[in-house]
């Protein structure tokens, strides 16, 4: 198992490095910050000094080298828009997004595992068709649209939920609901398919022949096997939740990392983009390793190979 985790971690590290390089150079290409921060008629000398002060005149590889050295000290430069260390700005926004994901993910998993398993128990039955149809709607609806329709219905028309902000638990209801929608829709289908396969397997037939009851067959025998493909897809959905968070945070004015990134791109705030991307990538990296560990725990064939 150790070997398996080590191999997978190594692969993730490769991805992480590729991303650091990619993001650094792409961010440098977004245009000169001098254009944005200095008046249009600023003299070339002023521009030069501005760039000189922040190190933007050095060759790219020098900037990159400085960036890497800084990384080792958790120093990712100064945010232009906040005049604070970029790491601080990002770490400040991070908990909000993390919280959003931490509330959403368990809801998604529990909801889809239960719905998918029950649908798989009688394929073609009333519940299965209903679940398939609703999950299809969930997977097909644009989340930004649900967000504003939600605002329209619950905040504007009925006035039972706030429109934006993070003050009270009520503020979290709509964002979490919107964020849950698509991943649940996708996962229900995955759970259903893998559970149908598991339930029609020979070991389930054998369990019936040994006199094991239906509840144990679904939740003890089939579910653990049926979960294997689900775990893989669930990790993809984790990246999907970050996607969703960008939209949800923008619509609901959540001061999370998604909103911060969009704001920073608009303001050409290199340091914050780098820090935010890195922190997000690191989070995805950690999630991937956790998923691999879960996989190995559930499937002994991986643990003992």
């Amino acid at each position: 198992m150790g070997g398996f985790i080590f191999k997978r971690s190594l692969q993730s590290v490769f991805s992480l490095i590729a991303l650091i390089v990619l993001v650094f150079f792409l961010a440098r290409l977004t245009g000169s910050p001098a254009d944005l921060y200095l008046p249009q008629d600023a003299s070339p000398e002023v521009r030069f000094q501005f760039n000189e002060r922040l190190g933007f005149n050095d060759p790219l590889y020098v900037q990159f080298g400085r960036f890497l050295v800084g990384l080792l000290h958790f120093d990712m430069g100064e945010s232009l828009q906040f005049s604070r260390p970029a790491v601080d700005v990002v770490l400040n926004a991070f908990p909000t997004t993390l919280m959003l994901a931490a509330i959403t993910m368990p809801i998604v998993i529990i909801l889809s595992v239960i719905t998918g398993s029950l649908a798989a128990f009688r394929p073609g039955g009333v519940f299965d068709r209903l679940a398939s149809f609703i999950s299809l709607i969930g997977a097909s609806t644009p989340n930004f649209w649900v967000a504003i329709v939600g605002v329209l219905v619950f905040a504007v028309t009925f006035r039972i939920l706030p429109t934006s902000g993070t003050g009270t638990p009520l503020h979290w209801v709509l964002p979490v609901a919107v964020l849950t929608l698509r991943p649940t829709g996708v996962l229900v289908q995955v759970v259903r398919t893998s559970m149908i396969t598991a339930l029609s397997s020979a070991y389930v037939k054998t369990a019936k022949a040994r006199g094991v009851g239906s509840r144990a067959i679904i939740f003890v025998h089939a579910l653990r096997n049926g979960l294997l493909p689900v775990i893989t897809v669930a990790s993809d959905q984790a990246a999907g939740i970050v996607n969703g968070a960008v939209i949800v945070e923008t619509v609901f004015g959540f001061p999370g990392i998604g909103k911060l990134m969009i704001d920073s791109v608009m303001l050409r705030d290199f340091a914050v983009i780098q820090a935010a991307v890195l922190v997000t990538a690191l989070a995805v990296f950690i999630i991937n390793i956790l998923v691999d560990i879960t996989y190995a725990l559930v499937d002994p064939r991986i643990r003992y190979s």
């Binding site: 692969q11 993730s12 990619l22 970050v242 960008v246 991307v277 990296f285």
Partner: peptide, 22 residues
């Protein structure tokens, strides 16, 4: 494959956000 992993493991929305601003 590693490149594909790198692109996949990073939320596509963020990638688009950055690239579309470049």
């Amino acid at each position: 494959l590693r490149l594909a992993d790198a692109i996949m493991s990073f939320p596509s929305m963020l990638l688009a956000v950055i690239v579309l601003f470049v």
